[in-house]
Simulated scan of single mutants.
Amino acid sequence: MLNIRNHQHLLVSHNVVADRVFAVYAGAQFAVRQLVEVAVRASSPGKNDPLTAISVIDRLGAALCELVPLHLPTGVMIDRGRPVLVVPSVVCDGLVDAMFT
């Protein structure tokens, strides 16, 4: 006999897809912020390490060149032509803002 809890579990497990895509892009945004922090600290008057700051900017630029041609997920899951789930996603604009603002 199928009780209510098992029935709810089956409904959820058949209608929700768990994926690591968002975790990967959230990790990318975190990595970008970490690199920006390194560049900011390297260019501070106390450190005065312009080579590190320039190296970070070069890495961010190279990453941006690789990201632009990719089709990043929109965060909208569609089933039978209708949106069924909206999850937060990272867009290229968000990464650019994190890199250079």
Rank of each mutant, 00 (worst) to 15 (best):
N3R: 09
N3A: 06
I4E: 12
N6P: 04
Q8L: 15
H9N: 15
H9C: 11
L10S: 13
L10H: 12
L10C: 09
L11Q: 11
V12L: 12
V16A: 13
V16L: 12
V16I: 13
R20N: 13
R20Q: 07
V21E: 05
A23R: 08
A23D: 15
V24S: 05
Y25E: 05
A26Y: 04
F30P: 00
F30Y: 09
F30W: 04
Q34V: 08
L35Q: 12
V40Y: 04
V40Q: 14
V40A: 13
R41S: 07
R41W: 00
A42M: 05
S44G: 14
P45H: 10
P45W: 06
G46N: 11
G46R: 14
K47T: 11
D49L: 11
P50L: 05
P50N: 07
L51M: 10
A53P: 01
A53K: 04
I54V: 10
S55A: 15
S55N: 13
V56Q: 02
I57R: 15
I57W: 13
D58I: 09
L60T: 03
G61N: 14
G61L: 10
C65I: 03
C65N: 14
P69V: 07
P69Q: 06
P69I: 08
H71R: 12
H71Y: 00
L72W: 09
L72C: 09
G75T: 05
G75Y: 02
G75I: 07
G75D: 04
G75Q: 02
M77K: 12
R80Q: 15
R80E: 14
G81C: 10
R82Q: 14
R82V: 10
P83F: 01
P83Y: 00
V84Q: 04
V84Y: 03
L85E: 13
V86A: 03
V86P: 00
V87I: 11
V87C: 09
P88W: 00
V90G: 03
V90Q: 05
V91L: 04
V91N: 15
C92K: 13
V96F: 00
D97P: 01
A98G: 01
A98Y: 01
M99D: 03
M99E: 07
F100L: 11
F100S: 02
